[in-house]
Design a protein around this nucleic acid. Structure first.
Length: 243
DNA sequence: CCCTGATTCGC
DNA sequence: GCGAATCAGG
């Protein structure tokens, strides 16, 4: 297998989207996890939380390491999302760490567009979820925090993977692509990276945040007291593991 | 052991 | 440039 333009593109998108090297390798097929990592490095797109390098730190750095990941800003999909540290930390209840998926990989936010983009073969999985998220509090900029796990349909079951590889860009033409991202538009991912209709929200952001007001409400959820939390939403990228 | 990503190094 | 082997943390 050679690194064709398409394969490189897919690798790049998935890598930046937070997929693990294994997932990417599996997705691409014909290459090993190592090959993916090697290629990613050669492409110059490393810089991702590595279990090894994460702990690697000179002795001088007074770290205060613990809150590092926990207090980190919510699920940044791609590219470093500016942390709303200043404003966010001020109010009594700081924006809570988003549903931390697992430990190691920094998983992007639960994509799951509320509105299914044209999903032709999509059978109506009629999510019973009624649109009445319990508002817990109001965040800076006016976005409404919801209770954890109380977003509308928590996660529309990673929509059936579409097996349409070649589909240049008929319907995605006016959608917000990775290349269209800038500081002013919402970078909330819609759909799954690598799929033909994957795109980003594209609305105007809630000033000071990487997402629009609506998605801020999803990204920054109010923290509930321990004890009655809901299980974290599943990871993006559909069904990574196939064992 | 399983998983990660990083690095090395022969090809 | 490529990727298996190796390393090292979680």
């Amino acid at each position: 297998m050679s690194w064709t333009e398409e394969r490189i593109e897919k690798l790049t998108k998935m890598w930046e989207g937070g997929a693990t090297a294994s997932q990417i390798a599996e997705e691409l097929g014909g290459v090993s996890r190592n090959a993916v990592i090697g290629k990613a490095h050669r492409l110059g797109l490393k810089a991702r939380p590595s279990p090894v390098k994460a702990a690697e730190r000179s002795e001088d750095e007074a770290p205060a390491p613990k809150p590092a990941r926990a207090a980190a800003p919510p699920p940044p999909p791609a590219e470093p999302a500016p942390a709303p540290a200043s404003q966010a930390a001020a109010p009594s209840a700081a924006p809570t760490p988003p549903p931390a998926p697992r430990a190691a990989p920094v998983a992007p936010p639960p994509p799951a567009a509320p509105v299914q983009a044209a999903a032709p073969a999509a059978p109506s999985d009629a999510p019973p979820a009624p649109p009445a998220p319990r508002i817990v509090s109001v965040g800076p900029g006016g976005f409404l925090r919801q209770g954890p796990g109380e977003q509308q349909a928590p996660i529309p079951p990673a929509p059936p993977r579409r097996l349409v590889p070649a589909k240049p860009s008929p319907e995605i033409a006016d959608k917000t692509s990775l290349l269209d991202l800038n500081d002013r538009i919402c970078r909330w991912p819609m759909g799954h990276p690598g799929e033909p209709d994957f795109h980003f929200c594209g609305d105007k952001v809630n000033p000071g945040f990487p997402y629009c007001v609506e998605h801020c409400g999803r990204a920054y959820q109010a923290q509930l007291p321990r004890g009655h939390r809901r299980p974290p939403p599943p990871l993006p990228f559909g069904n990574p593991r196939v064992r």
